[in-house]
Simulated scan of single mutants.
Amino acid sequence: MHFETLLTYLTLTVIGLLPMMNPPAAATVLLGLSKGKDKKYIVTQAKSVGINLFVALCVTFFIGSSVLELFNISIPSLRLGGGIIIVAIGFNMLFPRPEVSNNDPGQESIALVPLTIPSLCGPGTMALIISLAAQIATYENHVSMTSVYSGVVIGFMIVSLIAAFTLSMAYPLLKALGQNGINAFTRIMGFLLICMGVQFFTLGIEETVQVIHQLL
């Protein structure tokens, strides 16, 4: 195993994914959806996100392209679907439903959807990882593939740990803002999520139009 190659791909993976994922933005989503919850709930969700994110990244890297081909799903379609989900989440945050009394703070889990998918591992992240996997598959034999894949997987692990730690820091901010601050913050983030979802949707439409134009 070539340590230099491993370190190179580990670094490239972390540097490439963190800006795309934007864990602080996911932390704000957790903050907006955790109104009325306690510290244990937020920490539990953050840990679950770390595990779910690592699994999602590995699955996308190793079989993501095959899954998309199996179901004949294109990247533009992935962006369109992700955009719709994000808009729906943002709409519920901007116009929250009346709260139902619930004494069990751990009953509802938001770790997988929307925190892991599509907040952290969204269409852009998936497209980047699938592109990376396709590029690595074309490498010649002189490259140590064990080091390459090990570096990428360890990079996924580090990114997942960073995301989990960032989300776990949402509780101090939750306490600092107070109930009124959380209500206002939730609506602001809901509006921003709607804008993000519309942007994903628009990009998906643009890519679809480009594909259709190339076929004509």
Rank of each mutant, 00 (worst) to 15 (best):
Leu53Phe: 07
Tyr139Phe: 15
Ala127Trp: 04
Pro118Ala: 07
Ile73Cys: 11
Phe95Cys: 09
Arg79Trp: 14
Asn141Thr: 12
Asn102Ala: 04
Phe61Lys: 02
Tyr149Pro: 00
Gly124Asn: 14
Ile117Gln: 06
Ile85Asp: 02
Thr116Ile: 07
Gln135Val: 10
Asn103Trp: 08
Glu99Gly: 01
Ile136Asn: 11
Ile117Met: 15
Leu120Asn: 03
Ser147Phe: 00
Arg97Trp: 05
Pro76Leu: 07
Ile75Glu: 14
Thr146Tyr: 12
Val87Ala: 09
Ile85Gly: 02
Asn103Pro: 00
Leu128Trp: 15
His142Ile: 13
Ile129Pro: 03
Val67Gln: 14
Ala88Cys: 08
Gly155Gln: 02
Leu132His: 00
Thr146Ser: 14
Gly82Gln: 06
Ser144Asp: 15
Val49Glu: 02
Thr146Pro: 04
Val59Lys: 03
Ser74Glu: 11
Ser150Asp: 09
Val49Asn: 01
Leu78Asp: 10
Ser150Cys: 12
Leu128Ala: 15
Thr116Arg: 02
Ser131Phe: 04
Ala56Thr: 13
Ser48Asp: 05
Ile129Lys: 01
Thr138Met: 12
Leu80Arg: 08
Glu108Thr: 06
Met157Gln: 04
Ile158Gly: 01
Gly90Pro: 05
Ala56Cys: 10
Gly82Phe: 04
Gly82Asp: 12
Ser131Gly: 12
Asp104Ser: 08
Ala111His: 03
Phe62Glu: 02
His142Arg: 10
Asn52Gly: 15
Leu115Asn: 00
Tyr149Lys: 10
Cys58Glu: 06
Asn102Ile: 04
Pro114Leu: 04
Val100Met: 09
Leu128Ile: 12
Ile158Thr: 00
Gly90Tyr: 01
Gly64Val: 07
Ala88Lys: 05
Gly50Ser: 10
